[in-house]
Computed example of a mutant assay.
Amino acid sequence: MAETKKTLDLVHQNEIHIETVKKEQRLQKLHTEFSINPYRKLHILPDKPMSRKPTEAVVENSEFIKAFHKAREIPTEKYEAPLTESQEIGWVSAPLISSDRQDLRFNFYRVSTDVTKHSEYAQRTSK
């Protein structure tokens, strides 16, 4: 009786294993095209200064260059709205009103009055 229970368990375990393998194979995707990740910084090493090897002519890949420039853009140009809470801080960096140097509400210049002249004179004489 115990042996039949073990064989049933092995059979059920095998069925479960077959089912999981079939599900994994169904969801696997075969990738055949590869490219360089545009978001990763590349460290290009130059040739030795005294080497006589001619420089190689590299064919430009316009799609890669576009993806590289797109990855290097600042977030406000790349996206139309902030994606994270951290990006919301400072997303709108343009001033709310234009700066006017003649507007005295926002530009406080040093002005000498009778009180400031008197305090400057008192500080100079106390030394």
Score class of each variant (00 low, 15 high):
Ser51His: 03
Ser62Gln: 15
Arg72Asp: 07
Ile74Pro: 00
Pro46Tyr: 01
Ile97Cys: 04
Pro82Phe: 00
Ser98Ile: 03
Asp103Gln: 03
Thr7Trp: 12
Ile74Val: 10
Ser99Tyr: 13
Asn61Gln: 13
Glu19Val: 12
Thr4Gln: 09
Glu19Trp: 07
Asp9Gln: 14
Tyr79Phe: 15
Ala2Leu: 13
Ser62Arg: 14
Ile36Ala: 14
Leu45Asp: 09
Val59Ile: 15
Arg72Cys: 11
Ala67Cys: 02
Val21Phe: 08
Ile89Glu: 12
Glu15Ser: 09
Val21Pro: 00
Ile74Tyr: 00
Gly90Thr: 10
Glu19Arg: 09
Lys23Ala: 14
Glu88Gln: 12
Thr20Leu: 15
Thr32Val: 13
Gln13Phe: 02
His17Asn: 14
Leu42Met: 06
Val92His: 11
Ile97Arg: 03
Leu83Gly: 11
Trp91Arg: 01
Arg101Asn: 07
Glu77His: 13
Asp100Ile: 08
Ser62Phe: 04
Ala94Lys: 12
Ile44Phe: 08
Ile18Arg: 03
Thr32Asp: 02
Phe34Trp: 08
Ser86Val: 09
Gln102Lys: 10
Asn61Ser: 15
Asn107His: 12
Asn37Gln: 03
Ser62Val: 15
Ile65Phe: 01
Leu96Ile: 13
Tyr39Val: 07
Glu85His: 08
His31Tyr: 04
Lys78Glu: 04
Glu3Met: 06
Asn61Gly: 06
Lys66Ala: 13
Ser99Ala: 10
Ser35Val: 03
Thr84Ser: 13
Lys48Glu: 09
Ile65Gln: 04
Asn14Glu: 05
Ser35Ala: 15
Glu60Pro: 04
Ser62Glu: 13
Ile18Pro: 00
Glu19Phe: 08
Ile16Met: 10
Leu96Thr: 06
Glu56Phe: 10
Ser98Arg: 04
Gln28Ile: 14
Lys23Gly: 06
Arg110His: 05
Ile44Gly: 01
Pro75Ile: 07
Ala81Pro: 02
Ala94Cys: 09
Asn61Val: 06
Lys78Arg: 15
Asn14Arg: 05
Thr84Arg: 02
Ile44Leu: 15
Trp91Ile: 02
Val21Glu: 15
Met1Tyr: 03
Ser35Lys: 03
Gln87Trp: 09
Ala81Glu: 15
Ala2Asp: 10
Gln87Phe: 04
Leu96Phe: 05
Pro95Gln: 05
Lys6His: 08
Ser93Thr: 14
Arg52Asp: 11
Glu80Gln: 15
Gln13Asn: 12
Arg105Ile: 04
Thr84Ala: 03
Lys23Ile: 08
Lys41Phe: 01
Lys48Tyr: 07
Ser86Ile: 08
Tyr109Glu: 04
Lys53Glu: 07
Met1Ser: 08
His69Phe: 09
Leu8Cys: 10
Phe68Arg: 01
Trp91His: 04
Glu15Leu: 11
Tyr39Met: 08
Lys6Met: 14
Val58Thr: 11
Asp47Lys: 10
Phe106Thr: 10
Ser51Met: 02
Ser35His: 02
Ile65Ser: 02
Asn61Lys: 12
Leu83Glu: 13
Asp103Tyr: 01
Trp91Cys: 03
Ile74Gly: 01
Asp9Phe: 12
Phe108Trp: 07
Phe108Cys: 06
Tyr109Gln: 03
Phe68His: 04
Ala57Ser: 12
